[in-house]
């Protein structure tokens, strides 16, 4: 009978399909493993090369001085010098740029999602997407050609001098311009994801459009906006080329606190003069690389913890519940384990 044939073939095919499923699963796992390995390899490579100057004696039998690496306010480019102030400058420049970029992005996002007429909404969105994919070098050129004269004029107007417009302030502005499209895009996505029914409910209660925008839309999308900010921080912390063109590459110690001074960051220092660097002068940049990686990893962990906390607050759970929850869970697991052991 024909149906018997189908049955037979179905069984064979089913077995074959199961094997294919298993094979594909392994292939995907393997690919994912390779990707992870590349990242780990890069980090380990930098770690190893960066530690070497401090552990392995160089030609004259001395190793680099670790306390000098931490405490020296100057960077000498001959392999000696301290990175602490550069690390602080990196964080400082990023923070300042966030002060400019986050509110601007939120307003841009709100405008595009809620306020602007539907006809130009798509054009604006596409414009922001294009801005987000412009390479950093172009922002650097923009900073050099356009922002430097503006900052110079502004500095002169308030009675300060700059290095032809190169300054921490110019660097902050360039970073702000670079991160605004990124944060705006993510903000737009999270604002659009806010349930339209919530806005309707708010309007039905007699709230104005702007009240609805701020109290409902912004509040509901705040964890999304925060995620966008994390992306922006990542881009700003790691920016080298654009920043190097405008920040001046000079200065020691606490100079970076005055935004009209020139300074340098971890990234620009790693890049400066790399063409002519050999030996220890080249290797010490890897040590800076370690510092940069640590800064980025720690920042990301802290920000993600904060994001999870904010998401939980959004969902309305009280703050201390989570700690108690974890302890309770551990207790339950332990009890279950002990119970299982007994049996």
């Amino acid at each position: 009978m024909k149906s018997n044939n189908i049955q037979q073939n179905a069984l064979k095919k089913a077995n074959f399909k199961t094997k294919i499923d298993l094979l594909v699963k392994f292939i995907f796992a393997f690919l994912a493993l390779i990707c992870a390995c590349v990242v780990i390899f890069i980090v380990i490579f930098i770690l190893v090369k960066g530690i070497q100057p401090f552990i392995i004696p160089d030609g004259s039998g001395a190793t680099q001085n670790i306390s000098d690496f931490f405490l020296n306010p100057n960077w000498l480019y001959d392999g000696t010098g301290g990175m602490s102030y550069m690390m602080l400058a990196t964080i400082y420049v990023t923070l300042l740029s966030l002060i400019i970029s986050v509110p601007t992005s939120i307003f841009c996002g709100l405008f595009i999602v809620k306020v602007c007429p539907k006809s130009i909404k798509e054009i604006l969105k596409t414009g922001v997407q294009i801005l987000a994919s412009i390479p950093s070098v172009i922002f650097g050129l923009f900073g050099m050609g356009v922002l430097k004269p503006i900052v110079k004029g502004f500095a002169n107007a308030v009675g300060m001098q700059t290095f032809g417009g190169s300054s921490v302030l110019t660097g902050v502005l360039v970073l702000a311009f670079m991160t605004i499209p990124t944060i705006t895009l993510v903000s737009i996505t999270s604002m659009e994801a806010v349930d339209i029914n919530l806005s309707k409910a708010s309007l039905a209660l007699g709230a104005s459009n702007q009240q609805t925008n701020y109290k409902i839309v912004l509040k509901a999308s705040q964890s999304g906006i925060f995620a966008g900010t994390i992306l922006g921080i990542g881009r700003a912390l790691g920016e080298a080329t654009a920043l190097q063109m405008v920040i001046g590459n000079g200065g020691v110690g606490w100079d970076f606190l005055n935004v009209f001074n020139i300074y340098r960051t971890l990234t620009t220092t790693m890049l400066a003069g790399i063409g002519e660097a050999t030996g220890i002068k080249y290797d010490i940049r890897f040590s800076l690389g370690i510092v940069l990686i640590i800064v980025i990893v720690v920042t990301n962990i802290l920000l993600n913890l904060l994001k999870n906390y904010m998401t939980r607050i959004d969902k309305g759970e009280p703050k201390d519940k989570n700690k108690i929850g974890i302890i309770k869970n551990i207790k339950i697991y332990l009890e279950a384990y002990v119970h299982a052991k007994k049996n």
Partner: peptide, 19 residues
């Protein structure tokens, strides 16, 4: 002393020309 470091001849000329 604060000295601004630049990468090439072209850079130093454009910087000095701008300040």
């Amino acid at each position: 002393v604060t000295v601004s470091s630049v990468e090439s001849n072209a850079d130093i000329m454009s910087n000095v020309g701008g300040e």
